[in-house]
Write a protein that binds this DNA or RNA. Structure first.
Lengths: 194, 194
DNA sequence: GTCTATAGCGGGATAGAC
DNA sequence: GTCTATCCCGCTATAGAC
């Protein structure tokens, strides 16, 4: 949408198609039709589909880092960071039928080109590390429950969010996502106040 | 394997391929090669791939009902049922690279044939209903936390389990699944004993 | 119920003109 | 950087012999 250049337009549409249908269920023809150019022109920017997949996941990683750095500049608290994360994922859950790319790629992991697999695993670890880090800080500050290691809390949150997006989309009940997000938040919060 | 008839052998292998690669990333040729017959013979049993997908999901639904009825015959308590469910999903998390079919089909939902989508949604609702029912009973018996509606607990458990399988497989860290399963169990259990 | 053979299409990818 | 044209392959699906 209104991308500054063709390469960006391709990545934008590819991301949308991954989140809608999965990596293996869209084609260069779909990209060409959506952008209004020919298949061969897509190959000029991304010689193979594996190249496109790697570029897509690497862009997701950079975007995630940029997104997180905004929170740092705002001196966001651990709870504010967690809420920002939950809100961000909730936006996926509107009516557009898109879910988070992590979940899609994880589900078809064995069918991904090998270099896409590698980028994807690093992306997952980046999210896991970021979540565990903010959860640890929240535990130290006494606002999060510390009966469980922050790494385990992070794994639960990451898993539940991506699973909930999948369930909500298919069932058509987005309140199911909201219930999960609220449950996760209450689960880590110390039971002093809301 | 060692299926009694060809039709069952096809369904068994199709299920394995879905759980490994996704529905859209395996072909009739894969089935034919794995079973040792020709593509055209697969079409004799399942005229279209959509038919195969529907038969597969419907079989999953029947198997789930049969599995649950065994627990009823054993007079299993709500906690025993929950543990059986977590154990069953944990078996997926061994080293064979397979995850639960619910998660795979949910991730590629928009790319599924329409009748497969319909069967899949009913499968999801069946699991959700079963989980919510056992959680409600556990709440009534005072063994599960009742600060949250059982439907919301069920959505959290179902989401987290299928997300955790996806994360664990890709990251190669199956302890991440175990941490999630343990976290879910502790989350619903009343904090009296383990 | 399984086979051979083939139709018909769409996939990823490349060559070369503009 | 985008185009036309094309290659080759694998896919789903069907026809008809055995």
């Amino acid at each position: 949408m209104n991308a500054p250049d063709t390469r960006t337009a391709i990545l934008d549409l590819a991301e949308e198609l991954v989140r809608s249908r999965s990596f293996n269920a869209f084609s260069y023809q779909d990209l060409a039709d959506g952008i209004g150019i020919r298949k061969a022109s897509i190959h000029y920017h991304f010689q193979t589909k594996e190249d496109l997949g790697v570029a897509l996941v690497e862009r997701l990683r950079r975007q995630a880092i940029a997104w997180a750095s905004v929170l740092v500049e705002r001196n966001a608290t651990p709870l504010e960071k967690l809420d920002a994360y939950l809100d961000f994922q909730a936006q996926n859950c509107s009516s557009d039928g898109l879910i988070c790319p992590q979940g899609v790629l994880g589900a078809e992991y064995n069918a991904l080109p090998s270099r896409v697999q590698e980028s994807y695993v690093e992306f997952l670890e980046q999210i896991q590390t970021w979540l565990a880090s903010l959860l640890r800080k929240g535990q130290e500050q006494g606002v999060f429950m510390d009966d469980v290691p922050p790494e385990d809390q992070a794994a639960l949150i990451q898993s539940a969010i991506q699973g909930a997006l999948q369930l909500s989309r298919a069932s058509g009940k987005q309140q199911r996502f909201e219930a999960v997000a609220k449950g996760l938040r209450d689960h880590v919060l110390c039971p002093v106040d809301g």
